[in-house]
Amino acid sequence: MFYGIDLPGRLMLGTAQYPSPAILRDAIAASGAGVITVSLRREGQGGGAFRQILRDSGCRILPNTAGCHTAREAITTAHMARELFGTDWIKLEVIGHADTLQPDPFALVEAARVLCAEGFRVFPYTTEDLIVGERLLEAGCRVLMPWGAPIGSGQGLRHVEALRTMRAHFPEVPLVIDAGIGAPSQAMAAMEMGFDAVLLNTAVARALDPVEMARAFGQAVSAGRLAYRAGLMPRRDMAVASTPVFGQAVLA
């Protein structure tokens, strides 16, 4: 549940960098995504077709504050997004470093506090740092979105053990792996670990066939969720025969 909403699909898909609007539309449909992310940029030409794709998708819209480097910029962007998209959901990004696109946790908490107080449903793009997570919850966030790896890097879950700790530390909080996912297997691993959703863009948009890759990610996320709910067997150091020993013939 994300702010009281039960999503039909646990993949959240970005809408940038696709080869064409038609491929974007087909990729959204093939992915089974429950949420698609969008941005706000200076008005140019061709916006009408994109708006139509958003309407036709049937997905919940999650506007982002991508590119903002200060709390003030992110807050103003959130205000503009709320009016334009008619939603109080906001993917809050406050970037701290231009090369790594790492979140600035201090400005993030500051912006989250202001926006939550104004009634926004904030989805903060954060690191796996537990104390930052706690501060975001204190600020009013009811979802946390730790990064898997730097945005667009395709490195997968760079800090698997830290993410596992985060999952255990916030058992009741919806957690979304946001950014850095490069392959369906990585998304599936995140879901098997008990994360509630995965948000990605580049891995689908930059695939040779984005529509088929969107489908692959959708299936991986579903399979990973199923596996988590079914309960994975514990890992063992030694072999344990699966075929019964009882009744085995003596042939030696």
Partner: peptide, 10 residues
Amino acid sequence: IEVLAPMQGG
């Protein structure tokens, strides 16, 4: 003045 519109985003 900034005049912004919906655009593709991740």
